[in-house]
Computed example of a mutant assay.
Amino acid sequence: MAKDAKPVKPEKGTQMPEQGNSPETLDLETRRRNLQEKLARYQRDKKPDPSEQESGPPKGMAQAIRLSSEFLAGVVVGVILGLGFDQLAGTSPWGLIIFLFLGFSAGVLNILRSVGAVAPSQIGKNGASRQDDGPNKPK
């Protein structure tokens, strides 16, 4: 603005265009409506369907229970086999001790397989082939 220039004032009786009808405001209104529609679609897609939600325990808790039960199963089976071996052979604590350690190691191996640290057992996958497993296998 020049130093001596006076600001332009509308003359009395003339009408200024309203802010709501200017092209810039209409463009902003259109953009705002588009943004609201996109946000509504995003919120609708973001909310999980209540029927799809799991009603069970949290995932970490379920995995912890599964791993602990696999470990305990190995130890319990080892104790039962050890006590049975002691009854049959008459070797009082030694069968229990040996089979307890075997059950403990089987439980640890089960946990490592469940977590994925050890490859699953290959027993039965590459065992003896059946006669109908050949190249002329009927379909």
Rank of each mutant, 00 (worst) to 15 (best):
A73L: 14
L81S: 02
L88M: 14
G74C: 12
L81Y: 06
G95F: 00
L72Q: 08
E54W: 15
P48Q: 13
S69F: 14
V77H: 08
A62Y: 06
S69M: 13
Q43F: 13
L96K: 00
V75H: 00
G103R: 00
G60D: 14
Q63I: 10
D45E: 14
S69D: 15
S92W: 11
G82T: 02
P48G: 03
K59D: 05
D45W: 02
S92Y: 15
V79I: 15
G90Y: 06
I97F: 08
S55D: 10
L102F: 07
V79S: 03
L96V: 07
T91W: 07
G60T: 10
R44K: 15
S55F: 08
I98P: 01
K47S: 15
S55I: 12
S92M: 15
L72A: 13
L81F: 11
A62S: 13
Q53S: 07
R41I: 04
K59I: 02
Q87N: 15
K59N: 05
Q87P: 04
Q53H: 05
V75G: 00
G60Q: 05
E70H: 09
I97P: 00
D49T: 04
L88T: 03
F99R: 03
A73F: 09
D49E: 07
Q53N: 09
A62G: 11
L100W: 04
R66F: 14
R41A: 04
W94H: 08
Q63H: 11
K47E: 15
P57N: 13
S55R: 09
L100Y: 04
F99C: 09
S51C: 02
G95N: 05
L88Y: 06
F85P: 05
P50D: 05
V79E: 00
G82M: 01
K46W: 13
D49R: 01
L67G: 06
F85C: 11
P48N: 12
A89K: 11
P48M: 11
I97N: 03
P58Q: 12
G60L: 10
Q53D: 03
M61P: 06
G82N: 02
K47G: 12
D49I: 05
I98W: 00
A73N: 09
I80C: 07
V77P: 01
M61I: 13
L88K: 10
G103S: 06
F104I: 11
A40L: 04
S51R: 04
E70K: 10
Q63C: 08
G103E: 02
P58V: 12
V79F: 03
Q53T: 11
L81G: 02
Y42T: 00
P50Q: 10
S92A: 12
L102G: 04
A62D: 11
A64C: 13
A73K: 06
M61S: 15
W94T: 03
I97D: 01
I98G: 01
I80R: 03
E52P: 00
F101G: 08
G56H: 12
Q87G: 14
S55C: 06
E52H: 08
L72C: 14
L39A: 09
G78I: 00
K59H: 08
T91L: 14
P50Y: 04
P57R: 13
P58C: 14
G90S: 07
I97M: 08
V79A: 01
G78N: 00
I80L: 09
A40H: 06
V79K: 03
L72N: 10
G84C: 15
Y42G: 00
R66W: 11
F71D: 04
L72D: 10
